[in-house]
Amino acid sequence: MNELVFKYLLRISDSGLILAQRISAWTGHGPFLEEDLALTNIALDLFGRSRSLLDYAGNLEGKGRSEDELAFFRNERHYYNHLICEQPNGDYAQTMLRQAFVDAFELLLYTELSKSKDQTLAAIAAKSVKEITYHKRHSFSWVKRFGNGTQESFTRLQNAFHELWPYTGDMFEPIEGETDLVKNGFVPDLQKIKTDWEKIIKDLLEECNIRLPENVYMHSGSAKALHTEHLGFILAEMQSLPRAYPEAKW
């Protein structure tokens, strides 16, 4: 069971880590100063959460791997983050829509995880719920502004939607053996979360005059650590120092 929980922890911690790595690229380059600070706050929350989860995963695994060893010394085929998290930042509409998709998903997921039979996971999740509630408020506000702002912002939001939508299905792909975790009350059933998520996103996008398409082909694979080509570059950059100087302490 520990092995299974370990893998599940990687799945959720990696998603936060890779998304944070993506959005922190905006720090110093945001559309205006206040928003620069706001998005950085979200990146800080996500990195912080991933640290807690990786730390716990390392303990559970029992091989003495630290949060940093798990973050910096695993390659693409051992990363389980959702495909959507590794997609490029694009313009601000794409960054915010990606964030809204993930925030809505995470709020549902972590709310359930805060009731997990696993006490440590439940505690981390409870703290995260507060953070994610704010992230969602922020990203949803922006998506509405873009949907109802100018013609240009609407077009950009629509383009972002077409770009990102096929990666949303992947968030609801369970890892192998996840049903056992569900049965034991450790983690929630993703199918249930999916229904709620679709409703929330449908309402949000309706406010933006974007209709959800039907029968779009959904990419998947991240539950088996199969990724788009983007992840390799993210990891190459992120892991470069610890891998170049494995003896060094920072």
């Binding site: 100063l33 206040e34 928003e35 600070l37 706001a38 706050n41 704010y134 408020r137 506000s141």
Partner: peptide
């Protein structure tokens, strides 16, 4: 102070700038 375009943004910006 903060710059913001609407009330909700003003509140969020104030939170993100002044209560870190």
């Amino acid at each position: 102070n903060v710059h913001a375009f609407d009330k909700e943004m003003a509140l969020q910006n104030a939170r993100d700038v002044y209560t870190r």
